[in-house]
Computed example of a mutant assay.
Amino acid sequence: MSDPDFIDFTKFEGFLSFLASIDWKDPWLIALFIFHFSIFMMAILTRNYGNFQAVLFFILLLLVYFSENINELASTNWKIFSRQQYFDSNGLFISVVFSMPILINCMLMVGSWLYQSTQLMTTLKTAQLKERLRKEKRLKETQEKTKND
């Protein structure tokens, strides 16, 4: 195991068996996936509304920040909404089905912001170069006009 190229697939297989043991038809899990899909669509459809996206981003990060508290609350009250107890003390389940999709949406939003900022910088630089060319052209025209007079 000291070989740096060695990959331990037993942890991955354990994770896959964990995912296979989840009852994905549980109504609250379906509602959670609808929530994640709605957040994804909201992030996509509002990509040109910076203020709204900033608020959405902040709320999503707050949800991830408080996921440990949500996990504890869900762990004590799981019988109210779930058929099985998924909420372990390590927080693996809530990290996989709640926090990870939220963080992926946040990364997509940051990627969109970076793309938009590069487009804006490109547009700005192009406008600056065009303005400089216009000024140089006007200066040349003025110099030629003074030479001819």
Rank of each mutant, 00 (worst) to 15 (best):
48 N>W: 07
57 F>Y: 12
28 W>T: 12
55 V>M: 09
59 I>E: 07
35 F>A: 14
47 R>G: 03
29 L>K: 02
46 T>I: 03
43 A>Y: 06
24 W>D: 00
17 S>M: 03
54 A>T: 07
52 F>H: 03
22 I>F: 03
47 R>Y: 06
36 H>T: 01
39 I>H: 01
41 M>G: 10
27 P>R: 02
48 N>G: 12
22 I>M: 03
33 F>E: 15
32 L>T: 10
42 M>W: 04
39 I>S: 01
43 A>M: 08
25 K>P: 01
40 F>W: 08
20 A>W: 06
47 R>K: 10
58 F>D: 08
29 L>I: 11
19 L>F: 06
44 I>D: 04
31 A>D: 10
18 F>S: 12
45 L>P: 06
30 I>L: 05
53 Q>N: 06
51 N>Q: 12
51 N>D: 14
23 D>Q: 02
59 I>S: 07
42 M>D: 13
57 F>C: 10
28 W>S: 10
19 L>C: 15
50 G>A: 15
32 L>G: 09
36 H>A: 02
47 R>L: 05
59 I>L: 09
18 F>C: 05
19 L>H: 07
48 N>Y: 10
36 H>N: 04
25 K>L: 02
21 S>K: 05
33 F>C: 14
53 Q>D: 03
22 I>A: 00
41 M>W: 07
21 S>N: 05
19 L>A: 12
19 L>Q: 15
27 P>S: 00
39 I>E: 03
35 F>P: 07
18 F>P: 06
45 L>C: 13
60 L>D: 10
60 L>F: 04
43 A>D: 13
31 A>R: 08
27 P>Q: 00
20 A>L: 12
38 S>M: 14
29 L>M: 08
27 P>Y: 00
23 D>R: 03
43 A>C: 09
42 M>I: 13
25 K>E: 12
27 P>I: 03
25 K>A: 04
61 L>S: 05
40 F>T: 09
32 L>N: 12
20 A>Y: 07
55 V>D: 14
